[in-house]
């Protein structure tokens, strides 16, 4: 698959003391994180710990209140001149966003468009590609995610797993240099999880830089280059998957892993 070529050799994502408040509720309390180019970073942590919020800050769907956040060496949503920080104009924010693909837990496909139209929309309207080019690229991407025979189906005519694969193709159609995944398999029936993870695994092998919020510990262990454990709005622990998942250093990480890894008794 096409993987955008990063402009610098530095980290793809760098967060320094990122804070985010909703009203008086402080959700992110100083997140520090670095994701190297080409790396797959899996973010795990309990519900409400701010994983989604942090992910949404990376492409400026949420404005950060404090700290600094860079993607590929550029401040996200702001420009710095001297000591002063200036907000970027909406069109500059949009320009930053098209380099960053995002995949949502609820897919968020455009229901009034077919699979192929979903994938072609942004390349045609935002990147100003010709319809022919966008179409050709879109068909190729949908083929790569195994949906070549579903080009003209509307989202409601597709299964959850198929919808999520369209959503991945739609994000890739913008030729992003970074992909963000927010629990991409959490809304899926168990038997559909595998097909989506397979697509993501292939993407990782192709060298895409990825930040993946997930509860799939198997995926984090096998595909992740690093695993980051977040709790209560901060990064508690990060490192390579073997260390973090098998020998967590922090008590909170250990408690969380015990909860998710121990098989819960099924209600009968």
């Amino acid at each position: 698959m096409d993987v955008g070529i990063p402009s610098t050799a530095g980290p793809m994502v760098k967060a320094e003391g990122v804070h985010k408040r909703f009203g008086r509720h402080e959700v992110l309390k100083g997140v520090n994180l670095e994701v190297a180019t080409g790396e797959v970073c899996c973010v795990i942590g309990p519900s409400g710990s701010g994983k989604s919020t942090f992910l949404r800050c990376i492409n400026h769907l949420e404005k950060i209140d404090n700290g600094r956040l860079w993607v590929d060496g550029q401040l996200v949503g702001y420009v710095q001149r001297g000591e002063k920080l200036y907000e970027r104009k909406p069109r500059d924010v949009a320009a930053q966003r098209r380099e960053i693909g995002m995949v949502f837990q609820q897919f968020n496909l455009f229901p009034h468009m077919t699979a192929l139209e979903n994938v072609m929309e942004a390349p045609v309207r935002v990147r100003r590609e010709t319809r022919a080019t966008a179409r050709e690229h879109g068909v190729r991407l949908l083929d790569r995610v195994g949906l070549a025979s579903h080009l003209d189906k509307y989202p409601t005519q597709l299964s959850g797993g198929q919808q999520q694969r369209v959503a991945i193709a739609r994000a890739l159609a913008m030729r992003p240099k970074l992909m963000l995944f927010d629990e991409p398999t959490s809304a899926l029936d168990p038997e559909l999880v595998g097909e989506v993870l397979d697509v993501m695994r292939q993407l990782a092998l192709d060298g895409m830089t990825m930040v993946v919020v997930t509860h799939e510990m198997g995926f984090a262990r096998d595909v992740g280059d690093t695993v980051v454990f977040m709790d209560d709005g901060a990064v508690i622990e990060s490192g390579n998957p073997q260390d973090v998942l098998a020998n967590p250093r922090h008590e909170r990480t250990r408690a969380f892993l015990q909860r998710v890894l121990s098989p819960t008794p099924k209600p009968s």
Partner: peptide, 27 residues
């Protein structure tokens, strides 16, 4: 129209007016 539609459009780099015209109003 659910907020997720706007999130998806904006994450693709679509402007406010494009999102309105192509995503929100048609739905």
């Amino acid at each position: 129209i659910p907020q997720g539609q706007v999130d998806a459009a904006e994450s693709l780099g679509m402007s406010r007016s494009l999102t309105l015209r192509r995503i929100i109003l048609p739905q």
